[in-house]
Design a binder for these strands. Structure first.
Length: 663
RNA sequence: GCCGGUGUAGCUCAGUUGGCAGAGCAGACGAUUUGUAAUCGUCAGGUCGUGGGUUCAAUUCCCACCGCCGGCUCCA
């Protein structure tokens, strides 16, 4: 009988007996590889190590230290989690247990409506370790839909997943759970535990063990708020205990740069209990940063051909009826105020009011594109559970603009907007951008299909021209038009959605906006909504986290602190400070009432860009000792004029430091 | 809004199986005068998130509410 020939990743081929398993294949290459293997791929398709080699396939061995290998570890660990919960809570129903970034979760419904508490995590982990010690195999089986339904007769969620296939729903979703058009696949671990799953899995539970259960949470079945809430357990799993520890360490590091923590430590802002949930106050040090951000924004907008407008915080309900927001977002708006001549709402967005400015008089095509810009403060009633520091609050300020242009101008306007956005964000130290194109939500939109297609095409074309990498998110658009969202990557690799450019044919129509064209006829303008920071509060929070509080010199609340070695250097220290202050530098003097080291430490903890130490030598020579943030060692005897010139340049040119991953 | 956790001094946290509430840092005052990440001492600082209830007695036990934290849902 002829053997099977497979290709290796290096391009070579190798022949095997028919029936050779992927594990045997790995062993033939080396015992170390076989030991490290968690799964294999046949022509790129992940499979169990027990699978037999198909003739002609390209075969790779998946080890636990690769991204795919970790996914498999995590998925298998999730199965063990489910088995442990079913052992500890007999009669529990289990739902889905997918892999997520850096970990996994599994959703359950416990008998009698019981909820998990944090204390349960230890019990579950102990049971999981017992299952791992039992070294149960993961044995794959294929079943028909009918068999699957019978197998999971007492598991309503599993049945629902299997039934969804029959109904042709959510194919992508359920495929990962092991249900497909032609049947279902399951993994058998022990007589007491079989799970619906596409696989692949590690050969046995003994191959697992480096995991941690993180937390419990409630989560709606199938992500639907109207359906029942299940009990979710989150966990993480890695190839070694060291890798688990490193992961936990990374989480701790990320926590150190949490803007809410740094906001207290650096005295930037707070959320006074007495003020109410989701409402922030900016302290002087946060306030100056915000002012600098706003000043820079205004400067760039002025240069970019924008005109500045100001609108009130309240608006008549009729306005939001006209715009359509009340219809779609009433629940997200602050409750109305009844006043003698009508009903008023705190504005949740600025666009309808900008439309009123446009409509205040007749417009000519010569005025277009008309770019109205405002740092507009809006109020949204965010649900209590969604509030999150400055990232998600109930009152915030948008760097908002509405651009009214002709159809002919649309394409160019979008293109130059993309350039403008990235240019401004770059000044704050963000250099890696990606984009998303959101298209019409078929269940939530206004306007004709034709107009949506036109707008979507314009955005797509602009993105293609820009060279920005982007993905298309079907159905993610706002109700009034498609949009481009721009994401940035921060110092520790997280991505944040910042800017948005939204194309809107609907507001102009609803507000009856017109311009007189060169043909002396009336035409309808197109409107672009756009924000670069999105919300100033949120952008500030992202900046703080990106820099771990060590903001670039041009944005630092205090840029320089001068320390005299002894009190008799105080006069010179004041002189140095006064000179810098005269050039607009934010500087203070910390007198020698305390030892130098204590004052240096304090300034370091406050993350100042520069500490100047001045002593006898400096007084004599007109120099300063420069202790630069992030610098290796301080520099002695720098001529004051040199330091001043270099600092001035750093500030004027808005030089941004390389953000460091270690907070 | 839903699930879990949590709330003690400005900050970080001890503590009380129900019996007058503690530390470090920060703050004030005094001493110290210091060349690159913590000088010493003294003092002050709290209705133990809020409101009810049980009790001779509640920061502690029970109930409700509020805030915050982690998720879910939502995010114009």
């Amino acid at each position: 009988m002829a053997g099977v020939t497979v290709r290796l990743p290096d391009g070579s081929t190798k022949e095997f007996e028919p029936g050779t398993s992927a594990l045997q294949f790995a062993q033939s290459i080396g015992p170390r590889l076989a030991k490290a293997a968690v799964a294999a791929t046949f022509d790129g398709e992940p499979v169990d190590l027990s699978r037999t080699l198909p003739d002609g396939a390209e075969v790779t061995v998946v080890t636990a230290t690769t991204p795919l290998g970790r996914e498999i570890l995590r998925h298998s660990t999730a199965h063990v989690l489910a088995q442990a919960v079913l052992r500890l809570w007999p009669g529990a129903h289990f739902a889905i247990g997918p892999v997520i970034e850096d970990g996994f979760y599994y959703d359950f419904e416990l008998p009698g409506g019981v909820h998990f508490t944090d204390d349960d995590l230890d019990r579950i982990a102990t049971e999981m370790r017992a299952i791992m010690a039992e070294d149960q195999p993961f044995v794959r089986h294929e079943h028909s839909i009918a068999e699957g339904l019978e197998l999971f007769g007492d598991q309503p969620f599993k049945r629902e997943i299997i039934e969804a296939v029959g109904a042709g729903q959510d194919e992508v979703d359920v495929a990962a759970e092991g249900a497909g058009e032609h049947g279902v696949s399951t993994y058998w671990n022990s007589p007491a535990f079989t799970d619906l799953c596409r696989g692949p899995h590690v050969p046995s539970t003994g191959a697992l063990g480096h995991f941690a259960l993180m937390r419990v949470a409630g989560a709606y079945w199938r992500g639907d708020e109207k359906r029942q809430q299940l009990q979710r357990v989150y966990g993480t799993a890695w190839e070694t205990d060291e890798a688990v520890a490193e992961h936990l360490h990374r989480l701790a590091e990320a926590e150190k740069r949490d803007h809410r923590k740094l906001g207290v430590e650096l005295d930037l802002f707070s959320f006074p209990h007495e003020l109410g949930g989701g409402l922030a106050v900016w302290h002087p040090k946060g306030g100056i940063v915000r002012k600098l951000m706003e000043d820079y924004s205004r400067e760039r907008h002025a240069a970019g051909g924008y005109e500045f407008v100001v609108t009130p915080h309240l608006a008549n309900a009729n306005l939001f009826e006209t715009s359509g927001h009340l219809g779609f977002y009433k629940d997200g708006m602050y409750p109305p105020m009844e006043m003698d001549n009508g009903t008023y709402y705190p504005k949740p967005m600025n666009c309808p009011i900008h439309c009123l400015i446009y409509a205040s008089r007749q417009r000519s095509y010569r005025e277009l594109p008309l770019r109205l810009f405002e740092l507009g403060t809006v109020y949204r009633y965010e649900r209590a559970g969604t509030l999150h520091g400055l990232m998600r609050i109930r009152g915030f300020t948008q760097d908002d603009s509405h651009i009214y242009c002709t159809e002919d101008q649309l394409q160019e306007e979008i293109g130059s907007l993309l350039d403008f956005v990235m240019s401004v964000l770059t000044a704050f130290g963000f250099t890696e951008f990606t984009a998303n194109l959101s298209t019409k939500d078929p269940d939530k939109y206004v306007g004709s299909d034709e107009i949506w297609d036109k707008a979507t095409d314009a955005l797509r074309l602009a993105l293609d021209h820009s060279g920005l990498p982007y993905e298309t998110k079907e159905g993610d658009a706002a109700f009034y038009g498609p949009k481009i969202d721009i994401d940035v990557r921060d110092a520790i690799g997280r991505t944040w959605q910042l800017s948005t450019i939204q194309c809107d044919f609907n507001h102009p129509e609803r507000f009856g906006l017109e311009y007189v064209g060169a043909d002396n006829a009336r035409h309808r303008p197109i409107m672009l909504h756009r924000a670069l920071f999105g919300s100033i509060e949120r952008f500030f929070a992202i900046l703080v986290e990106h820099y771990a509080g060590a903001l670039p010199a041009w944005l630092s609340p205090e840029q320089v602190r001068v320390l005299g070695v002894r009190n008799d250097h105080q006069g010179y220290a004041e002189e140095v400070a006064a000179g810098l202050r005269g050039r607009g530098v934010r500087v203070s003097v910390d007198p020698a009432d305390e030892p130098l080291n204590a004052r240096i430490r304090r300034a370091k903890l406050e993350k100042l860009p520069y500490i100047l130490v001045v002593g006898d030598d400096d007084v004599a020579a007109g120099t300063v000792g420069v202790n630069r943030r992030g610098g290796e060692r301080p520099e002695r005897g720098v001529p004051l004029v040199d330091f001043t010139a270099a600092l001035q340049r750093e500030i004027d040119e808005r030089i941004v430091p390389e953000p460091v991953a270690d907070a």
